[in-house]
Design a protein around this nucleic acid. Structure first.
Lengths: 347, 347
DNA sequence: GGCACTTCCGGTAACGTTCCCGGAAATCGC
DNA sequence: GCGATTTCCGGGAACGTTACCGGAAGTGCC
């Protein structure tokens, strides 16, 4: 339980000055091979481990990085965290992880903690304008997630929602579905607007009137999806109903609502999710979905951060492509006239 | 992009010495109210934020804590992380989070990083004997999870597997099931032994011969559970089959296997999980399971760590009780003679 | 053998903070 | 109004590390 050995102890043990010990323990070339070995052996013997607090103090580089996400418990963000963790770790640094719960004050407090810990940089999913303060301190940071779009001037990484929506729509079309019904997120969310806009564009490109689109609002939860699907089915009681959900939780809720209503998936309804959460693989039927590259998002954010610190300025925003995961929740309607609104009564 | 203001800048701005500024900014009483306000105002104006690196250096308290878990991507461990994060945050400190991937070398490297960062303490799910080294450095730490049982001398927190198993068994009994079939984890795992032992005890207490127990080995994965359930059904092709699975992923795999075999749950088979993963709530039928108090585990581990640091020595091992979550995967066989082996052919 | 040059090493300062100590001023007791 | 006490503040050192500077040997060359 004695104090931890310092470089001075090592130097004494090796019979050299602390300067020489420091040189030997770093990669400095100004040191004799023999003395380097002697110092290394002394360090090993003393159980010496470099004090990063002191290093950070002297060099200004703490070896610490920060990550502020809404909730580490959310599988998407956990993947992001893992990706960032891996890259940061590969560079010999450590990651401080915080959960903001989408709360302004919590975020502010976490950002302050990060600054006080003298992190070398941070990855943040912004929930407010706190990040502006952050930049003002001259701290390098990279934004992540769809909410980062509000800050076009700072480097950020996100999944390519437009590409993802097109991917889903095209896949639905190829299976013989027309423009699907939509269960969207809350009107306040940026991602919702982008989602909807892309669907509209996709419709127009195919001469489908977007006004014919069937949409319901939800709140990104299982229960919300469940309720929205019930409303949807009430509006389209007959015919095959294809639904494109704004996330997987909604889709899972919709799946339950359909089954409760006696509408079997994928026979009577087709449900397409968006996210790629693990739970989607275990549902019945397993959920066909569009997977956001969560871990890669975290990796790329960390990589961008290192680039920025190294003086390689980053582009405004990078979009990473999403991937379709075909499982069992979509019906193959065969070669059938597409471009019709799903569930529309054919006269 | 200028340098960050130091306490000396604040002192100069307030027209006092840095000693006085330091006193004013901490909770020291040896300072006049007026000058304290003056310093506080100067600090605010300068945008001063205490440098925790320097504080840690001087005081030996870095304000940093470590968490080493197998995988932050695993929902159980994410919950643990969240619990620890919350408690650490409430105490004004920050948490360094690492994923070991159950790998010896990665764990060793993460523990070294923690020591070099001069964390004040760590919470570790041990995958090897690396933690022994850790203790030797005099660093306070708390173990977490079932693998911590190998270290009876160091404080650790885990879920009460024996209580959980009894809870499941009793519940099954109350629903008219006899001793259920078991899908267990790998033979190398400690948790498996404890699980099996408790089932045996439970049987003996009720004059059931444990030899009659139907068991299959698995590997804690969805695919493993799927395969094990197929073997189980081949051994008991008729009658209601109740299965107690060692974790939820296994249970979800078993659910799929049953459905594929045309055995409907909960009509023909009853499946009980163990863990409380989110995916269990979204399956069909939703999985009845025994929930480990993951977040509370993380909270209690952090609390125990603070206690230990504060000089309040911790007990060897603490077991936290698990909770039954009733959903839809268990049949109610009614008041029927219990204590029979589920699925056994009645002659 | 003298000079320039390289190689290697030790001393010192600095990073930003807090703690200890001593001293000046103010207050108190009589 | 004078010593004793309290209140408040400044100076200096220390935490562990690395960067810089200067110097002492050793080497090569003519």
């Amino acid at each position: 339980m004695g104090k931890r050995p310092t470089i001075i102890d090592v130097a004494r043990l090796a019979g050299v000055s602390k300067s020489t010990a420091a040189r030997a323990l770093t990669d400095s070339s100004d040191v004799n091979e023999a003395t380097r070995d002697k110092v290394r052996e002394a360090a090993r013997q003393a159980g010496y481990e470099r004090n990063h607090l002191a290093v950070g103090m002297r060099s200004g580089r703490s070896g610490l990085f920060g990550l502020v996400i809404p909730d580490i418990t959310n599988p998407f963000w956990a993947e992001v965290a893992r990706g960032a963790q891996d890259i940061v770790g590969e560079n010999g640094a450590s990651l401080l992880v915080f959960s903001s719960d989408w709360d302004h004050d919590r975020e502010a407090s976490h950002l302050r903690a990060l600054r006080q810990a003298r992190v070398e940089g941070a990855i943040v999913n912004p929930v407010s304008d706190n990040v502006d303060d952050f930049g003002r301190f001259g701290l390098p940071f990279v934004l992540i997630g769809s909410s980062a779009e509000r800050f076009p001037d700072t480097p950020s990484i996100g999944s390519d929602i437009a590409q993802a929506v097109r991917l889903g729509l095209d896949h639905l079309n190829s299976l013989g579905h027309g423009a699907p019904a939509l269960i969207l997120g809350p009107r306040s969310r940026l991602a919702r607007a982008r989602f909807l806009r892309t669907v509209h564009e996709h419709c127009l490109e195919r001469d489908v009137d977007p006004a014919v689109l069937l949409t319901e609002d939800s709140d990104y939860t299982f229960e919300g999806g469940h309720a929205a699907m019930q409303r949807l089915m009430a509006r389209r009681p007959v015919g095959h109903l294809a639904v494109f959900c704004a996330n997987d939780l909604i889709a899972l809720g919709a799946l339950l609502a359909a089954r409760e209503a006696g509408r079997e998936c994928p026979r009577d309804v087709s449900i397409l999710g968006f996210d790629g959460v693990p739970a989607g693989a275990f549902s019945w039927p397993a959920l066909t979905t569009i997977e956001k590259p969560a871990r890669e998002l975290g990796r790329r954010a960390a990589l961008a951060l290192f680039d920025e610190i190294a003086g390689r300025p980053q582009a405004g925003r990078t979009y990473l492509p999403c991937r379709l995961i075909e499982r069992g929740s979509l019906a193959d309607l065969g070669a059938q006239t597409p471009l019709r609104v799903a569930g529309a009564v054919r006269s």
